[in-house]
Design a protein around this nucleic acid. Structure first.
Lengths: 375, 375
DNA sequence: CGAAACACCGTAAACGTTTACAGACTCTTG
DNA sequence: CAAGAGTCTGTAAACGTTTACGGTGTTTCG
């Protein structure tokens, strides 16, 4: 409460100048006797450096911002979980911006960089508009963008590869003998929706499967919407043997409907989700899912930013993180028999989980996308 | 990049003093002509206020810290999701501290309040030690603690009520006719573990059920551990008809084992989880779970802190958030028949879900506990 | 013994704001 | 027209640091 002690207070108490106090506190060469006096005074007074004054003078805040649409989104959360420790280890605090679905808010956040309350920023834009590019060009501090940004944009860039991701899934299903592979997508006017739709067509073509419009259903990236979409799909075509879902929630909705319709998963219909969220491991049957490497993208972004903060003037870097297919029960049949219940139970827990009261820290992967589009 | 413009730059450009510039920018009464000139200059130069200098002078950072053990933990995440918008609406930025399982780090974070880089802090301590209480007493900025703190501690305090929570669950199971209700707990040397163990005994007593040591199994708060514990339990006693699990992950492990053992849920064994995480709605069967109101505790904490930041000198407040039982399929039989698949599929999606690529923002409830104990 | 070299320390300026105070100007009024 | 009131603006100090610079005192060496 009481006005905390400053270096002036210490200087008086120790009978030295504020310059000496500062030098001692910063470990600059000083006579032993002075060091002792200053340390003693600081100790007694319970002195703590004022970060604000320090930042003003040094032009370094030791803070970094992470801006995304919604902390509740597992993809962003996965990034955050990786970003946080990297920054912390480097002595940076993390300022969180959850902008919501409003694109204008992202521009605001970029603009606020001018306030210089952070040394740099990691941003996951919902969409990359003209305004974004303009602000990125004029940004007053280094920015790392997670999600693709056009060549030549003067920022470090970490990308996912949903194209390859979808291909991994389709190849997997194809290898399992599935030939009527449907796509349950989200809105195609979102970045991930569009990318996944296109990738699906390509992947089919590569495998020599025909593209059948009947097999594509558009819903939204929610469980209930996914369920509706799958119900509609099943009413229309009866011989579907695999569902490629554009995210895990849609896939959960698909499982709901398939179960209700009496179809066995994966025997009758195989299901693949996308983003490899915690939900994928929790569902029954557990969900095969494509990880677009959110966690790793977060880590890489943090590292790129730290590099940039140290060095500053190298060329912008672009890193693409490869996707990964995590195979679980929704595409491969259960192991024949169950010997030991304990063993069986633990079987498909692919994720390590953390401290009390809940799970935490899945070591790798989850959702991922360039953007996040909201209808 | 280039050294951004300051009020001095503007003053020169507009031909006025820096005091006038400051006045204009802060909307203090000024001649119209001056306002025009300053605004024009600011506009042309793309001026943005320097938050650091501003904070130094005004002694307000407009930043608030949220400190907890692990962002990946759904309980903390639920809090964060509520805290963030409340603070944002009030014009505060959010600084995130994920301390990890190390108690000493929490003390460090409290100590760092002295650096004055935030105006206040919301903390969810893992445990409340003597050191905590001491630091809280001497804190240089207002702190709101989520999790019980002794009477007389000079901070605002938001509490959960896991006792009542467990009672709700036991009453529910009892009402369903279950009489052999087992407890699958986490380590009893953690705050939640201890609280839940005690509450279980009490709740049984209230219902006139005997406390049977055979029915209590201790594991850890993870899925695999939960599975092991339940397997051990089933090997020991055969007539269990309900499992009260100390968190949702344990409950998921329980479902795994019960399925493998050929027991039907809920017909043979009913299962209740705790914390009401997103996983509860995602599992199959969906999981009845006790919400300790993490989301609401977060919101309340944020509001208490804002009050404190405005007013400052009122008495510490204590708020207890009531638990809530969210009933799903793991305790109540499925509805008899499925008419409309769509309908059926959407049936137990109790949580609203958010934008693209994943779920988000469950409107209410999730885990909760006073602490978080890690083994 | 005087000067040069050196170690240590204090004075003061700077970082970019906000704000108390007083000066300058305009306007009103007797 | 002089004086007083009122309006606007500029000067300067302050917030709590860091750091360039120069001063003092001690040591070293010719």
């Amino acid at each position: 409460m009481a006005q905390g002690p400053t270096i002036t207070t210490i200087a008086e108490r120790a009978g030295v100048s504020i310059a000496s106090v500062s030098r001692v506190l910063n470990g600059l060469p000083t006579r032993q006797e002075t060091v002792r006096k200053v340390m003693a005074a600081a100790e007694e007074l319970g002195y703590v450096r004022n970060a604000v004054a320090r930042s003003l003078k040094s032009r370094r805040t030791h803070q970094v911002a992470f801006a995304m649409a919604d902390v509740g989104n597992p993809a962003y959360l996965a990034m955050l979980r990786e970003i946080q420790p990297v920054l912390k280890a480097a002595g940076y605090r993390l300022v969180l911006h959850s902008t919501g679905a409003v694109v204008a808010d992202e521009i605001d956040v970029l603009h606020s960089l001018g306030e210089r309350y952070v040394d740099g920023m990691i941003m996951v834009p919902l969409r990359v508009t003209e305004a974004h590019l303009q602000m990125l060009g004029a940004a007053r501090a280094p920015v790392v963008v997670i999600g693709s940004v056009p060549e030549g944009t003067p920022v470090d860039n970490v990308r996912a590869d949903s194209r390859t991701g979808v291909r991994l899934a389709v190849d997997h299903l194809h290898a399992l003998g599935r030939r009527r592979i449907a796509l349950v997508n989200g809105p195609t006017d979102t970045v991930p929706g569009a990318a996944r739709g296109a990738a699906y067509r390509e992947a089919l073509a590569e495998r020599g499967l025909p593209y059948d419009e009947e097999l594509v259903e558009i819903g939204d990236f929610y469980r209930a919407e996914g369920a509706r979409a799958v119900a509609a799909l099943l009413n229309r075509v009866s011989d579907v043997d695999a569902l490629m879902c554009a995210n895990d929630l849609i896939a959960l909705g698909a499982l709901d409907v398939l179960r209700a319709a009496g179809k066995r998963v994966p025997e009758d219909v195989a299901v693949v989700g996308m983003d490899d969220t915690d939900l994928a491991a929790a569902s029954w049957p557990s969900l095969t899912s494509v990880s677009l490497g959110s966690a790793e993208r977060g880590r890489v972004a943090a590292e790129l930013l730290l590099d940039r903060l140290q060095d500053g003037e190298h060329e912008p870097r672009v890193v693409t993180v490869p996707p990964r297919l995590v195979v679980r029960a929704s595409t491969t049949p259960e192991p024949p028999a169950v010997r030991d219940v304990t063993q069986a139970a633990v079987r498909d827990v692919t994720h390590a989980v953390g401290p009390a009261d809940t799970q935490s820290r899945s070591t790798e992967g989850t959702e991922g996308t360039e953007g996040g589009g909201t209808s």
